[in-house]
């Protein structure tokens, strides 16, 4: 177990290192950081002094090392457009994005998994076909268009739910703000989380259905039926558990993707999260925010994958106990 985890951890760290290299390259070489920081009237000498002070004249490996050390301490430099430390800007916006992602992931899993199981077990039933059709529409409608349609329907036409913002938030601890504790906060969460979660929900549903259909054709399921086991046992103890192994991987990837997809949803709903800030950074070529965002999402993603690998380990005995 420890060896397994250590190996996975090492792989995760390599991925993070490569991403850090990318982020650093972007940070250092795209545009001139000095130009972005100073006004036009700054003299050449002053620029050179700033360059020296920021260490931009050091050898590249030294700069990279410094970049990693600082990033590990959440120091990502100063935003070009806001003239504030990037870490502070992110600290303000992370709670909004994580709460939105959490709500959508919950929605995607709670609705997607049962639908997938049902459709996998009852391949020919009318309800399964309905699920499949709906899911096809779900993956065909672009996320942002779903958001627009929901806003048009529930905000503009019916005026039931707000079309932008987080509603009222409550401060929890020193820097976390939550929208889960107020009515307006919860109401504001409904449309964005459905918008964000719908695509993942359909993917999860289709995946589980497809895996179920594969597993049901295996010999051990046929043998379980030939032993006269009741359908309930065959379907849930044998088929579902074997389905889980591949499903967990993809689901992990999808949950990671939610955080990235949040960018779109946050734009449509003007949700004050880090995705929205990232988009503005892209439009204004605010490189420090871009590279910090790159590192952050990669980190969340790698962390989720690591957890998934560990889960794998508990589900699949073939990883746990060796052959004699």
């Amino acid at each position: 177990m420890i060896g397994f985890a250590a190996r996975r951890l090492l792989q995760a760290m390599i991925v993070m290192l490569v991403v850090a290299l990318l982020a650093f390259t972007m940070f250092r070489f795209v545009g001139d950081p000095i130009n972005q920081m100073v006004g036009i009237e700054t003299s050449l000498e002053e620029r050179e002094a700033l360059r020296e002070r920021l260490g931009l004249n050091d050898p590249i490996p030294v700069q990279f090392l410094r970049f990693i050390t600082q990033a590990a301490q959440f120091d990502f430099g100063t935003s070009y457009q806001f003239r504030q430390p990037v870490s502070e800007l992110f600290a303000k916006r992370i709670p909004a994005t994580l709460e939105l992602s959490f709500a959508s992931a919950l929605f995607a899993l709670v609705v997607g998994i049962p639908m997938g199981i049902y459709a996998g077990l009852n391949r020919e039933s009318a309800i399964s076909k309905l699920f499949l059709s709906v899911s096809l529409i779900g993956i065909s409608l672009p996320t942002f268009f779903i958001g627009i349609l929901l806003i048009f329907l529930f905000s503009v036409t019916l005026q039931w739910l707000p079309s932008f913002g987080r509603g009222e938030v409550v401060q929890v601890g020193s820097w976390w703000t939550t929208g889960f504790l107020t009515l307006s906060g919860l109401k504001a969460l409904i449309l964005p989380s459905i918008t964000l979660g719908l695509y993942q929900m359909t993917l999860i549903m289709r995946l589980i259905r497809a895996e179920m259909l594969e597993v049901i054709r295996t010999d051990y399921i046929k043998f379980a039926r030939a032993r006269g086991l009741p359908d309930r046992l065959v379907n849930f103890r044998h088929a579902l558990k074997n389905t889980l192994v591949p499903v967990i991987t993809i689901t992990g990837l999808q949950l990671g993707a939610i955080i990235a997809f949040a960018t779109i949803t946050e734009t449509v709903f003007q949700w004050p999260g880090m995705g929205l800030m990232f988009l503005q950074a892209v439009q204004n070529v605010d490189i420090p925010i871009m590279s910090a965002y790159l590192l952050l999402t990669a980190f969340l993603f790698v962390a989720i994958n690591f957890i998934v690998d560990i889960l794998y380990f508990f589900i699949d005995p073939r990883l746990r106990v060796g052959r004699p």
Partner: peptide
Amino acid sequence: QLTFPAILIALL
């Protein structure tokens, strides 16, 4: 590459 969804890569 897979660590980042398509949309994010395209944005970057």
